[in-house]
Amino acid sequence: MDFDLNEDQQAVLESVERLLAQHAGPARAVALNRAGDYDHDLHAALEAAGFNQIARDLARDDTLAGLEAALTVEAIARSGGVVAAAAQMLVAPALCERTIEGPVAICTVGELTQPTPVRFAAHARSLLVLDDGDAYLVSPAPGTFEPVRTSFGYPMGRLSEGASVEPDREGQALGAGAADTLRNWWRLGLAVEAVGTMDAALGHTVEYLRQRRQFGRTIGSFQAVQHRLSLCAIEVEASRWLTREAAFHNAQPEAVAAAAAYALQAADTLFTETHQLSGAIGFTCEFDLHVWSMRLLALRQELGGVGAARRALVEARWGAA
């Protein structure tokens, strides 16, 4: 049992955080979200530094690439980066040895037949589609997805009226077992993003409550506030380690389901508590909490959310109900 990051992992984390300090952050996220844009510059910077391919060995070897990619995605979520990091760095390499052109979006086939908002779809060059027992890759032509107005922190798109998507020719190569692989890595990605996002939301709130004074003392000195922040911190840390363990085990289904079920439930608690304890300023756009908090709710909507993760856990541990 070793919870410390090894030297390689530490180096990966430090280097991506240096890059993010330069290319990401809440102010940038606010500007991009206002315009409904994708952060192509950040995407390019991550590409140039090799982070988009950090887990390229994933489909081939028994490596720690999954954990390194997870640490990177967690850091990007913490920075509020408006890029499809989880799909690019965790999901795509698990499905396919060749490099999939980004940005990458993921959806279920149901979200195409009954056009539903999909994260990053309006900007995606590649789309991974989960069918019941199958998974395929498509390269949507520009305009296939139209942007959707949302305030939940990510650009989203919905299949345009009259548009359709065809599997690309190499998409067939995703092959047997791809649906399970896609589902597991997608779910792991959601948990990893939730961890980084919760971490930042809580950190931002705690920092504010350390400063703000009411009744002659800082708000953070009230026990009713402190204890609730402690519970939040516990949920974030528990989510973090469940998620890292699932990444370490290369998205082993039971570990993934446990991590996602826990982290996505924690996301709801974190949303509620960080806003309640921040008070009125927490609802204003000038206070950056919303950069992360709103995303927590969006993450909960994907792939069936907490309910589906819980059912997956039951199935993985005790067999189908």
Partner: peptide, 16 residues
Amino acid sequence: ARAVLDLGGPEALVTG
């Protein structure tokens, strides 16, 4: 409101 969001799926994220 939480139930609305939990049961609403991604459609619940669309402004308006």
